[in-house]
Simulated scan of single mutants.
Amino acid sequence: MRTERILARLEQEPERPSNRGVPRMSRTRKWLFGSTMVLYVLIVAAVLLSTQLVRVDWQIMLFRPYKQWPEYHAFLDYFVVLGQRAPTAVLVAAWLGWRSWRQRTPRPLLVLATSLLLLNTTVGAVKIGLGRLGPHYATEVGSAEMFAGGDIFPSGHTANAVVTWGILAYLATTPRARRLLSVVAAFCALGVGATTVYLGTHWVSDVLLGWAAGLVILLGLPWCEPWIARAEALVLDYHERLRAFARRRSPVPYAPVGASLATRGEGTEPGGEGALPGEEVPTAGPPAAPAARPHHAPRPHATRTDRAPGGPAGGSRRPGGERTVTPRTAPLGPRGK
């Protein structure tokens, strides 16, 4: 019974959500965005100037957490996949695609595509521009390993975990769902960042900058909402055009000519505007009754003598009720078995 109820609920076509739940660039969000940008710049400056943050990077790297607690290594190897771009993007896109289909709007997928585009552009540009080497490829103890051809700063795993899982909270339609998904996103982002430090694939400063890079994208995403709304309108308009084109191309069901004439009215008058000589033009009137079956002229029926039930052969009864007996012209033969 519960399964039938769930399936019936899934088959219902929900209404397209309004734009009331679209996040706005409020004063608090602007303040958080500005603070995160300042933190972003400070982390980059601290690494470039080889400050105490770089020394902390080396201390944790030389401590080698994966050797201190090797029993967690196998589990965390799988857990860090939550920050890889391809698996998480496919998983979240599948969920948001289902939501787009249910809500009859492409907005969830458009928001995800916009955030991933901003993530790859900004984080990729900083990675290539700074060119920092990872802990496993470091060449000089205490060095920041900048501009050495690497692509480790900021942490792509961490930034991707912040953005990909944070999009679920960003698109939540109720306060309760937003709080719950915010906790899930924070757990994934913090866990993936700490796991990369444990495995020795990132410096601590890489993870800090990855968190800041992901938050900058999430906090600044409302500025992209006008372009997302335009793209949504274009997609919906194109979809409506395709549906109209498909309806025009669909074959028209065949209807008999007599049925179409009957629906136009039963009254006709000879002649009329645009009619040929002798042609009857239908006139407006009440709906025509269904045509009666044609009646053929009566045919002559052969006369048949009524035989009295149980009477002798050759006997007949006249219309007046008198019975006559017709003499036999030939003797009866032997009765067959």
Rank of each mutant, 00 (worst) to 15 (best):
A86H: 07
T88R: 07
L91W: 00
L130T: 01
W69L: 15
K67Q: 13
R102E: 01
A86P: 03
P87K: 07
T139H: 10
A125T: 11
Q68A: 15
H136N: 09
Y137A: 11
G131V: 10
A93F: 13
F63T: 10
T114K: 05
L117T: 14
G97A: 09
W101Q: 10
L112F: 09
V90R: 01
V90W: 12
V81E: 05
L96Y: 09
Q103Y: 13
K127S: 03
L76K: 01
G129H: 12
P70I: 05
A74I: 04
V81W: 15
Y78P: 00
L116H: 12
G124D: 02
A113G: 12
Q68H: 12
L117Y: 13
I128P: 06
A113M: 07
D77S: 15
T105H: 11
E71G: 11
T139C: 04
L118A: 06
A113Y: 00
R64N: 13
L82G: 02
P70L: 04
T105L: 11
L116R: 09
V123S: 03
Q103R: 15
L96C: 04
V81H: 14
L116P: 00
R64V: 15
A125H: 09
G97S: 07
W98C: 06
K67R: 13
H73G: 12
E71D: 14
A113H: 02
T121H: 01
V81C: 07
P135N: 02
L96R: 03
Q103A: 13
P106W: 07
R132K: 03
L109T: 10
Y78T: 06
P135M: 01
R85A: 08
W69M: 14
S115A: 12
T121C: 08
T114E: 00
F63P: 02
V92Q: 01
G134Y: 08
S115C: 09
V111I: 10
R102Q: 05
G83L: 03
E71P: 08
G124A: 03
P135Q: 02
F63V: 08
V90S: 11
L76E: 00
D77W: 00
R104M: 13
T122Q: 10
W101A: 13
N120G: 15
G131P: 02
L133W: 01
R64M: 12
Y78F: 11
T122G: 14
V81M: 10
W95K: 05
G83N: 03
P106L: 07
R102N: 04
R107P: 03
A93E: 00
K67S: 11
G97I: 03
Y72N: 10
L133P: 02
W95R: 06
A93L: 08
L82F: 14
L110R: 11
T121L: 12
V126R: 01
S115E: 00
L119Q: 01
L82T: 04
G129W: 13
G97F: 07
V123G: 04
G134M: 02
Y72I: 14
Y78S: 03
K127H: 06
A89H: 08
Q84D: 07
A94N: 04
I128W: 11
R102M: 01
G83A: 10
F75E: 07
E140G: 13
S100K: 06
V111F: 05
E71F: 15
A138Q: 02
A94P: 02
H73D: 07
Q68R: 13
T88V: 15
N120P: 11
Y72W: 15
Q84M: 05
K67M: 10
R132Q: 00
V90P: 05
N120V: 13
F79W: 15
R104Y: 14
P87G: 08
